[in-house]
């Protein structure tokens, strides 16, 4: 193989990997959506602590999460390290969500100073996963 052939093969490989990598951006949208739904759910449940608010907000959030799951299942590829990123994001989200809800509903119902930062902390793992995915999919590589 000559130098020119090697260069041509490398350029072709780079073109393909970049196209595939860019297609992985769907996960950034998924994670951002997950984070946004989380913020809304935690704020509604925390700041308006009534059975009616919970009864309305929870099913609406569940429909949102279900729509995101369908969106995820319809994607033709998963980006590199997707499983690890997703598991880390979901584990962080679950821990923050449980801590915010259990402590908040017990000790600080309706307290803005608890629920607003709490909602943002809950959304932090999926938002971080979204940013990580955007950074990874934008990264030019040979």
């Amino acid at each position: 193989m000559q130098r020119e052939e090697a260069l041509k093969a490398l350029v072709a490989a780079q073109d393909i990997t970049e196209r595939v990598r860019r297609r992985g951006r769907w996960y950034a949208g998924y994670s951002a959506g997950f984070g946004a739904i989380t913020v809304a759910l935690v704020l509604v449940v925390g700041l308006w602590p009534s059975p009616a608010a919970v009864a309305v907000a929870t099913p609406v959030a569940l429909v949102g999460f279900a729509a995101l799951t369908v969106y995820c299942l319809r994607q033709p590829m998963s980006p590199r390290r997707h499983a690890a990123v997703h598991l880390t994001s979901m584990a962080g989200w679950a821990a923050a969500y449980l801590a915010t809800l259990v402590v908040g509903t017990t000790a600080f119902p309706g307290a803005v100073w608890w629920w607003v930062p709490g909602a943002l902390v809950c959304a932090l793992p999926p938002f971080a996963a979204a940013l990580y995915t955007l950074a990874r999919t934008a990264e030019p590589r040979a």
Binding site: I16, T17, V20, R21, G24, M77, S78, R80, H82
Partner: peptide
Amino acid sequence: AALAAADEA
């Protein structure tokens, strides 16, 4: 090259 850029496709 395509599969190297993804976990799976």
